[in-house]
Design a protein around this nucleic acid. Structure first.
Lengths: 195, 195
DNA sequence: TGTCAACTTTACACGGTGTCAAGCAAAGGA
DNA sequence: TCCTTTGCTTGACACCGTGTAAAGTTGACA
């Protein structure tokens, strides 16, 4: 029961962290806030997660698991044509962003100062880039990639279009609806990259 | 002579700040670093600029003046057609970004925590948005705005495309050349917004 | 009964921002 | 010549958030 309580506490902390970050993104959420929200002492948090970056990393993984990213992104891999794949990927990732925005924002804020956080975020974004790369390759294999576009540049462009910062700018700063955002990204990707 | 030295010190501090930020963007530049680089005590900096945000704001204005933003952006206002105006604006602003990137990055890092810095940065970006708005309006007046696009959405899209974060992503993270960046932004804006 | 594991409480070090107060040196006027 | 003002220096300190250290508490279980 003690060992299960150990795990339960860990989960409680991660759950509280993701809840707080999701509730008030942009607000600086402190370790003590997370501790309080978990119903645990600040030091208990440090017992489970040596640093803030460690907690953030674990929380991100935890969220991926709870939200089942793999399944959410599976549709795009099942697509037959390149165009479908591109569309499905934009749909999947574009709609995943708001679900992880709180944690993402915390990462982006720490990135500048914390080495470990920067590396972890880079990893996640590299993984996302692979999705972009696969969509572009599928497009190219169909002969549907706009002529004169090399795959790497096309991937970079798509990657930029689908960055969390672009989502943030349009949805948070400009006040676009999630649907308008996804449609705009599809439109941009289509007109820019598809022949 | 004392009153002129007063101004000189102020300028020295702002010059040192912009130099340090430009030299090592991404590195956290502290007030004490700026003081040292200015050849002045840390408290002298606080004598001239009550807070870090104040220093940043003044430095940004100072930089605008030294680099002569107005002139750099003038070409776009002189353009006759909407398409020319769009192109000229992307050219001007897109090439201005790297010149202010150091300071911009400092603002973006502070934005999350500092109210004053966030407001000042928002002001600057709103001013930039007016440029986007004007370009889109000129396009619409020529009947060259893609049908089914309302001007506000088009402005938002262009604004997002020309954000410092987009520049950062492509040039800093993806390693694109400044020229490739500007061309890509022109291409994206053209294919997405021009009829 | 005693041990171990998870957790609590309290205290403290560190780095960065911002404040406060006393002192100093040079310019400039009486 | 003396005296005031101005621009700056020096050194100390408060505050906050992260992270560390150490001793104490509580419940499970052998």
């Amino acid at each position: 029961m003690m060992s299960s309580s150990n795990l339960e506490t860990r989960e409680k902390i991660m759950a509280a962290a993701s809840r707080l970050l999701e509730e008030k993104p942009g607000t600086a959420v402190r370790m003590s806030d997370i501790a309080k929200a978990s119903g645990v002492s600040r030091q208990a948090v440090y017992l489970h997660f040596p640093t803030r970056a460690d907690l953030l990393i674990a929380t991100a993984r935890h969220l991926d698991q709870v939200l089942n990213v793999d399944e959410q992104l599976a549709a795009s891999r099942a697509a037959t044509s390149g165009r479908e794949r591109l569309d499905a990927y934009i749909d999947a990732w574009g709609n995943y962003i708001p679900q992880i925005y709180g944690v993402a924002r915390a990462f982006l804020a720490m990135e500048a100062t914390d080495e470990a956080a920067a590396a972890a975020w880079k990893d996640r974004m590299d993984a996302m880039r692979h999705g972009c790369e696969a969509a572009v390759r599928a497009l190219a294999e169909d002969g549907d990639l706009k002529p004169g576009f090399d795959q790497e540049k096309a991937t970079d462009l798509l990657w930029t279009l689908l960055s969390v910062r672009t989502w943030e700018h349009l949805v948070q700063d400009c006040g676009w609806s999630q649907q308008a955002y996804v449609e705009a990204m599809k439109y941009m990707a289509e007109t820019a990259l598809v022949a």
